[in-house]
Amino acid sequence: MSPAATAAPERTIEEPQALKTPLLVSGAVHLVLVIIAIVGLPYFKKDPDPLSAAIPIEILPIAEMTTTNKIPVKAAPAPEPEKLEKPPEKKPMPPKVEEVKPPQPEPPKPKKAEEVKPKPKPVTPPPPDEAALEKTEEKPKPEEKKPPEPVEAEKKEPEKDTAQDFNKLLKNLQDSKPQVDETLPEAKDAAPPTPAPVASFSQQMTMSELDALRQQLSRCWSIQAGARYAEDLVVEVRLIVSPDRHVMSATVVDQWRYGQDSYFRAAADSAIRAVNSPQCETLELNPDKYDQWKDMIVKFDPREML
C-alpha cells in the first residue's frame, strides 16, 4: 500500500471531526429559528403597552330634571274581558231584515256653530297655516278658570306610564307559558328629538327637557291595539303653543291624507286627542325657552310598538 493511498483515508477520517462543531452550531441556530417561528418574538420580547384609544365625549347641557331613568314600570294590565251584559230587550225582529230601507244619511248639521268661540290668537308665535287657522277658530278655550288643575294631575301621574310593547300586547299562548314579562323595555330606540340648532347654547332645549315633553305626550297618547296598517300610521302634528305652555292650535300636517284615508284619520284624531287631553293641557316645557317651542312638530310614530 502506497503512502498516498494511506493518506487519503486519514483525510476522510479527519473531515467529519472538523465539521462536527459547525454542524452543531448550525443545528442549534436552526432550532432557535424554528422555536422563534413557532413561539414568536413577542414571547421573548415584551412590547410596550399600546396606547389606549381616545374615547370621544360629547358634552351636552343637562337640565335640572331628567325623567329618562324612570321608564321601566309595570305594564298596564291587558284589557280585561268584560262581562257580557244581558241584551236589554229580546224583541224578535221581523224575519225580513232586508225590508228595512237602507240607511239614509243626512248631512250632519253643524250645530251651534255660532256658540263656538274662537281661541285668543297668540301675539308672538308665527301664524299657523290655513288649516291650522281653521282649527283654532273652531276651538274655544272655556277652561280659563281652572288652569292649575291639570298640572297637579300630571304630577300625580308619572309612575303610571302604561306604554307597552305591541308584541307583548298581542297574546300568544306559546310565549305566555314560560314567562310573564311585565316590565317595559327601555326607550333606547326612541329617535332623539332635534333641538333648534341656531339658538344660542343656553337657549337650546336640553335633552332632558325634550325627554320630559316626549314622555308627557306618551302618557296622553292612546293607541289602538291590533290596528291594521299601524306601521303606516305615522302622524305629524303641528303645535302652536302659548307662552303659558298651553296648546293653542294642533293641526295634522298631512291634511290630504287626513281627508282620504280613514285609518290615518283615526290615528290622527288619536294624536290630536293626545295633545288636547287634560294631562297634556299644560306642556312640560321650560318657560324661558319659549322661542324654541312656540311652534313645533310632534311626530306620533307607532312603528316601534309593533
Binding site: 328629538p193 311652534d295 313645533m296 306620533f300 310598538m305
Partner: peptide, 19 residues
C-alpha cells in the same frame, strides 16, 4: 324663512287602552 328651525319631537310610545 323662519329665524330658527322648527322644533321636532318624536313620540314613539303610547298607552294601549280603550277609548
Amino acid at each position: 324663512v323662519p329665524a330658527h328651525a322648527q322644533l321636532r319631537v318624536d313620540v314613539n310610545k303610547g298607552k294601549i287602552e280603550p277609548v
